[in-house]
Write a protein that binds this DNA or RNA. Structure first.
Lengths: 245, 245
DNA sequence: CGTCTAATTGAAGCATCTCAACATGCGTGG
DNA sequence: CCACGCATGTTGAGATGCTTCAATTAGACG
């Protein structure tokens, strides 16, 4: 594996979107031992109850974190893009209290917790940056909580689309006002606390109101200011420092 | 201030509920410089948009973290008990994306971020424990998300009562099957994404079903297994290691 | 005691759900 | 390259959990 592979680059680009890295730190990250694996759509990368000894860097594909309720309903709590390490928390929380599932076919690079501890020992500020990343994670949960608790379905969906677009843009995964969004309406419902049927109707409204359109799995933003307003969206909670080039 | 004051004890007791501390670490925490302040009920300890240079250790009183939506509704995202440091995150996230409010008259000990950095440098494992604490925070947000997104009002309220009781017990704030719960029904509503009226009706149901009762601001658990079942409660997400003596 | 906040009750409305049918698109094997 | 099959998206109609508004009662506190 070259000193700085495609996989390492994903991680570096992500970390640079939320903070600063020196050349030496980038080089050290580039030397992280990675174990690259592929997961089929619909499979779990990590299950609730697992006690992992590694964390997963998403390299390609869309993943989500979710919990099942006692009566078999699903709540999706976050969507994750390439560059994210959704289960970084398992570094300090032994038992997974939720699952990590692949929405599309996903490539992930497994990083041993031991390697991370070593990296942080040599470069404490990388540790701080990763702590920061888990804090941003928490900020996103809080924002979703506001949405599900207090916003209308219309506003909630608009807000989520804004979030996904801004996060994708921060790591260079958008093309103009367009991004790949391989999430079904049923999954959107499980994320927003809505039924798939209602998601469908509200998406039609958002299209009719001229904010968005879609070609297959591609989302097109037609009116960004309008969508932001409809979603009461304020990107502060994402704590993004800078956009990818 | 004595080497280990009441304020320091609160923090030590909290950290011991989620992990281990050596004698030396406890002593180091006992030497943390604290600036004790009192906040009236209904006032803010920290406001959305602030860029704090310290974090707040709650010593007495009930506090909450909340956000306001564009149309003036409030969503409470967490309740905090003595021993908690609700805005520990401001250590690595410059701008507060939500407020920290006092529900009752609250005593808080301000800890300069500088002091924390110094403590972590000398005792890295205290830093890890505090990282762990912010991760548990995030786990609680996730659990609330599941409740608000996918559970009935009845189940959601039962779940919240279970959480508060277990957390209070972990830091020694319960008396038998009783605890102080100075939260109004309107605040419960803002936390659970419900109207105060509906909270009232559901609380009556929970009392009628024999799970709980209340004397003034004191909550009494009459049927713990029943309440757990009603709330689909599983304490795993709290990641508590051990109960206070 | 009077005042203010919190809790309680009733009644009407609506955002969203559930169920059920039908349409569309897409991957795959014949 | 067409036909089949299955996942996803779309539509309609009826049901409901929770909301809103508005009034009343109970508690706490000077």
């Amino acid at each position: 594996m070259p000193a700085t592979s495609h996989e390492h680059d994903r991680l570096i680009r992500k970390l640079e979107s939320i903070g600063d890295l020196s050349a030496g730190e980038k080089a050290a990250i580039g030397r992280l031992p990675l174990d690259v694996r592929v997961f089929g759509a619909g499979t779990d990368l990590v299950r609730e109850g697992d006690r992992p000894s590694h964390s997963c860097l998403i390299v390609e594909g869309m993943t989500c974190r979710y919990k099942m309720t006692g009566d078999g309903q699903r709540q999706i709590m976050a969507f994750h893009l390439p560059g994210d390490i959704p289960d970084l928390q398992s570094l300090h929380l032994q038992t997974m209290d939720h699952g990590l599932g692949a929405i599309t076919r996903t490539t992930a690079a497994l990083i041993a917790h031991e390697s991370l501890y070593e990296l942080f020992r040599a470069h404490p500020s990388i540790g701080h940056l990763m702590w920061r990343d888990t804090l941003i994670d928490a900020a996103v949960f809080r924002e979703w909580l506001v949405g599900v608790g207090r916003r209308s379905a219309y506003s909630r969906i608009a807000d989520l689309l804004c979030e996904l677009f801004v996060r994708a843009r921060a790591v260079g995964l958008t093309h103009g006002d367009t991004m790949e969004l391989p999430i079904t309406q049923s999954e959107l419902g499980d994320a927003l606390g809505l039924s798939a049927v209602h998601v469908n109707r509200v998406l039609q409204e958002l299209r009719a109101d001229g904010f968005i359109s879609s070609r297959g799995r591609t989302l097109v933003i037609n009116d960004w200011p309008g969508l932001e307003k409809a979603g009461d969206f304020d990107p502060t909670y994402l704590h993004i420092r800078r956009m990818a080039a």
